[in-house]
Write a protein that binds this DNA or RNA. Structure first.
Lengths: 201, 201
DNA sequence: ATATACTGTTCTCAATCTGTTCTCATCCAG
DNA sequence: CTGGATGAGAACAGATTGAGAACAGTATAT
């Protein structure tokens, strides 16, 4: 069973090797963890060796080798590395900072639900046929929000909303070839507003 | 028979381990449940141990291990209810079948990473400026796949790929107002192919 | 090769964190 | 009212963490 610091140490060793192709020195580990004492770092490395997670060649610099045991030594299995923005002129492999993103923590909250989108009424907002949208339950919405609205308690649609001054509500598709519809307020009930969208290829 | 708080404690321990890969500390449990006293949390942990639902290594931090009994009725806190397809004329609230979707299980695999997209070169594929794309590391790609390609080891871009018969490679933006570029194969290295896309509002 | 700087290793000391055990107070159902 | 569930917090022991000294082996420059 690893302590927090031991886990962070192992994590760093792995990503360092992934990144550079060779293992780090004690000082490099310490720099990353904010530890000034090589002795302290060495204690963690020793602990990891005892747990059979790495192998250490005694005495030699960079003498750490990871033990490739099949049962995934990846630390946070539910996170993906955030490799940065694609545009700047940089190889993806040169990912230095180990920022990660956990999709569940990012999107999953009480009161949210997922809908599969059918149709092309929102393609100008990048919501395509077959996409999934993450909605948050709510009863009201501000202008221009994308909401699921139930019309006449029968038909549910995903549209941008506009609360008109006369009290009526316009539901506006994001598709140049479709036109908005206007309903009296009592015919429309908001079911939720969009908080996310995703798609699998 | 568990009390509400005991059940919540057990649920949290399970999902924490699912999520992070290691068990929580008493304080972390308390933070999640809104309990300031480690002593109170400890009482719940002790109760769960007496019910044989977890095992505790006395004295050590994160010394909790789950007991894998089949009759686990726990709620998966990391899932969202899949409310169905939006189009059929049904109120969202009338969700009968509790199909759920777990974003992490859906998208997170070893060798994948996330990129934030900058620019409009893929808007016709519904990939907008600021969106995130989930990529899977790979060296080759088939025609028409969306890939991250590194050009001249300098510039990384997200484009559709086409392997031309003469050995050159075309990188095709999904934007009517932009044009494709063709490169000799040795100038282009594939970094990964798209497997998902998501966006937060 | 030799001197010098660097790196790994072992130890100790001090501060902080964490689990554990208790007691006291509050709230609620029967 | 009584008993059970819940929460706060004090007090303590042991675990965890960080700093740094001291030493030996290794790497590097001259």
């Amino acid at each position: 069973m690893l302590t927090d610091r031991q886990r962070q140490t192992l994590n760093f060793i792995h990503s360092f090797i992934d990144d550079k192709g060779y293992p780090p020195k004690l000082k490099e580990i310490g720099d990353h963890l904010g530890i000034r004492s090589r002795g302290t770092v060495h204690r963690y490395v020793r602990a990891l060796e005892n747990e059979n997670l790495i192998q250490v060649t005694t005495g030699r610099s960079r003498g750490i080798a990871v033990v490739d045991n099949g049962n995934a030594t990846r630390i946070d299995e539910n996170s993906l590395p955030l490799a940065g923005t694609i545009a700047a002129g940089m190889p993806i492999e040169a990912i230095e900072d180990q920022e990660t993103i956990n999709l569940n923590e990012f999107f999953v909250r009480p009161g949210r639900f997922v809908l599969r989108v059918q149709g092309d009424s929102m393609i100008d907002d990048g919501i395509f046929d077959g996409d999934m949208v993450i909605m948050e339950s709510c009863q009201t919405a501000r202008d221009n929000e994308i909401v699921v609205a139930l019309i006449d308690r029968e038909e549910a649609t995903l549209k941008r909303i506009k609360n008109n001054q006369d009290g009526s509500i316009s539901l506006i598709p994001s598709n140049q070839s479709m036109q908005a519809f206007r309903y009296s307020a009592d015919r429309v009930s908001i079911q939720g507003r969009i908080v996310g969208q995703f798609r699998a290829y």
